[in-house]
Amino acid sequence: MSPRFRKWLFLVSTLGLALLLFWAVVALPGFGNYPGPYGDLLNSVAVYERHVTNIVTAVNFDYRVLDTLGEEFILFAAATGVMLLLREQRAAPHYRLPASPRAVFARSDAARWMGLGFIGALMAFGIYIVLHAHLTPGGGFQGGAILGSTSLLVYLASKESVYRRVTPKFLAELAECAGAGGYVVIGIGALLAGGAFLQNVLPLGQTGNLASSGTIWLINFSIGVEVTGAFSILFLEFIKEVPEREDSA
């Protein structure tokens, strides 16, 4: 199929798709008129039922907790897949490093100071986002993404070998596995305590306190650990694809 023909075929069929989409959206309730009822129901009962103030977290880690388990394992499988693919390539006999490794560019003072200066603050911010998921906006996924990316600042401010020293691969892998496994262990714990799989069996505590919301907090923490590990692994593996010459640093 020639590119020209393909483009025309695309344009014609897209016109059809666009009309279908337009037909679909005119029948939706207009923007700003959410009709309910599920969201309104959750908004009115979740605070009392689960002692959380962030309803999105309650949905993710309690009402839809089984779906989030699946989502977590998509994340786990994708990170593992990246790791396997890239490591397999590097181990292949015909593999050779790129002919000329990228020269280490001199990090400017601005990059160095901004990078190193922000590490502590970003890390504290990430931990805060993970721990307060049930109270304020945020959660394990968001906080984990921040925490996993923090070590990149070391790479930006310094060089690859320093980055590898502060991000041990073993710890990243351990965090990913412990986080993913922890979620399932919490679910089985609920079974042993006489509830259903992943049921919120722990005492719910006082609404608004850090120690409240039962298993929601625990599952969220476990997710935070896993996402931190998964993001660290992704960055470690991809950065290995752009080797730097160590001598010129």
Binding site: V59, N60, E71, I74, A79, V82, A145, E237
Partner: peptide, 26 residues
């Protein structure tokens, strides 16, 4: 308040999107 269910779905969506993108890059 707005609907929390779609917010939870978008969160799922973003996480899956980010990791699948990483896998595709690999």
């Amino acid at each position: 308040a707005v609907d929390p269910v779609v917010h939870a779905l978008v969160l799922t969506d973003i996480v899956v999107g980010a990791t699948v993108t990483a896998l595709l890059f690999a």
